[in-house]
Amino acid sequence: MYLSFLLIICYTLPSLLRACPIYLTISLDGKTLQDSHIEVNWGPECHEYPEWIGIFNEDPSTAYVPPEARITDITNSSGKIVSDVKIGKLRFPQGWNNYDENVVPIEYPKGKCLPYYVASFNGTELLTVECLKIQPNWMSKLDHIAQMPLKELFIPGTHASAAYVANLTKTKSVLIKDYVVAQQFDVWSQLVFGIRYLDFSIGYDKIDDVYDSNNADNFYIVNENKLVRPLRSVLRDIKRFVQLSHEVVILDFSSFPIGFYKHPERHSGLNHLLREEVGDIVYIRNTSTQEGSKQCDELTIEEIRKDNKYLIILYPVQELPYPESGD
């Protein structure tokens, strides 16, 4: 038994050492997400190149399937090639699509492969397999990070997170195509893929300054001084996701470029909207000077999730509205 174990190690170790890291990403070249192509990436430090890399719609390690695309002549230690394979209609497992109603999703603490696989080969010898994964539960299921303060965590995030357009073919504006649109995925999909930090710039669209249910939708996501979409619908997607996943998400309200200058009362209106839509799941930090109170970046995931709180809102202190009676 001992000799057999040594023989197995001696046989498999060279294969592991020479295996070249590979992974898939989605290109930004499509006018719609469905038209975007799959990118094959390899490296870094790919010293012994595979003879070829294939893209598959099933796991090639469990069943024989012909590749949808085949890449050869790999001669660099790292690189990227845009394939001819399009992402097509992207569907998540049941319960993790934004349109799934009254469905309790399965939790995937280690991620879940979508039907997009990449594998490297020497001839017919399979070297490595990877897939395009969703990560809807990675934070809440990693026990060892629950006790770590936020400042010690590397949290994946996006810039101008809600600046997306579902179909660029419907606009002829070069400004929108090249500057305003920053994301191809909506906020819900970003969260399902594992993003936990969202960056928002906010604008105000109307003259009416009195907060009520009729003008709450005047608060818009903004990018490059263009109004993109109402904030309320984005907040509702975020709330639904964290209630399903029990993940902690950081919302960074980084700037207010439209409609807020010399209108501090609009920050009060925005504060009302945030309380109305997500107030019950926002962590409220203890701001007292008593011993034991912590700065925001010193909080742990466990402390934030206590009492079913899942959101941290970052808001410029100088813009915060004055406390109002009854709040």
Rank of each mutant, 00 (worst) to 15 (best):
Ser255Met: 10
Ser255Glu: 10
Phe256Tyr: 04
Phe256Ala: 10
Phe256Gln: 04
Phe256Gly: 10
Pro257Ser: 01
Pro257Asp: 00
Pro257Gly: 06
Ile258Pro: 05
Ile258Val: 11
Gly259Tyr: 00
Gly259Ser: 01
Gly259Arg: 02
Gly259His: 02
Phe260Glu: 00
Phe260Leu: 08
Phe260Asn: 00
Phe260Val: 04
Phe260Ile: 02
Tyr261Cys: 08
Lys262His: 11
Lys262Gly: 05
His263Val: 11
His263Ile: 11
His263Leu: 05
His263Cys: 04
Pro264Ile: 12
Pro264His: 13
Glu265Gln: 14
Glu265Phe: 05
Glu265Met: 06
Arg266Thr: 05
Arg266Lys: 13
Arg266Gly: 09
Arg266Cys: 08
Arg266Ser: 08
His267Ala: 03
Ser268Arg: 15
Gly269Glu: 07
Gly269Met: 10
Gly269Tyr: 03
Gly269Ser: 15
Gly269Lys: 09
Asn271Asp: 15
Asn271Tyr: 14
Asn271Ala: 15
His272Arg: 15
Leu273Arg: 03
Leu274Trp: 03
Leu274Tyr: 12
Arg275Tyr: 15
Arg275Leu: 14
Arg275Ile: 13
Arg275Val: 12
Arg275His: 15
Arg275Thr: 15
Glu277Trp: 11
Glu277Met: 12
Val278Phe: 09
Val278Arg: 10
Val278Ile: 15
Val278His: 09
Val278Thr: 05
Gly279Phe: 14
Asp280Asn: 13
Asp280Gln: 05
Ile281Ala: 08
Ile281Gly: 01
Val282Asn: 05
Val282Pro: 00
Val282Ser: 04
Val282Lys: 08
Tyr283Leu: 12
Tyr283Thr: 14
Tyr283Asp: 04
Ile284Asp: 13
Ile284Gly: 09
Ile284Gln: 15
Arg285Glu: 07
Arg285Trp: 02
Arg285His: 11
Arg285Gln: 11
Arg285Asp: 01
Asn286Gly: 06
Asn286Trp: 10
Asn286His: 05
Thr287Trp: 13
Thr287Glu: 13
Thr287Cys: 03
Ser288Met: 07
Ser288Trp: 00
Thr289Met: 12
Gln290Trp: 04
Gln290Phe: 02
Gln290Thr: 06
Glu291Ser: 04
Gly292Asp: 08
Gly292Trp: 00
Ser293Phe: 00
Ser293Met: 06
Ser293Ile: 06
Ser293Thr: 11
Lys294Ser: 09
Lys294Tyr: 08
Gln295Asp: 08
Gln295Tyr: 09
Cys296Leu: 03
Cys296Ala: 11
Cys296Glu: 03
Cys296Trp: 00
Cys296Tyr: 01
Asp297Ile: 01
Asp297Arg: 03
Asp297Cys: 03
Glu298Gly: 06
Glu298Asn: 06
Glu298Phe: 07
Glu298Asp: 06
Leu299Phe: 00
Leu299His: 01
Thr300Tyr: 04
Thr300Ile: 11
Thr300Asn: 00
Ile301Lys: 01
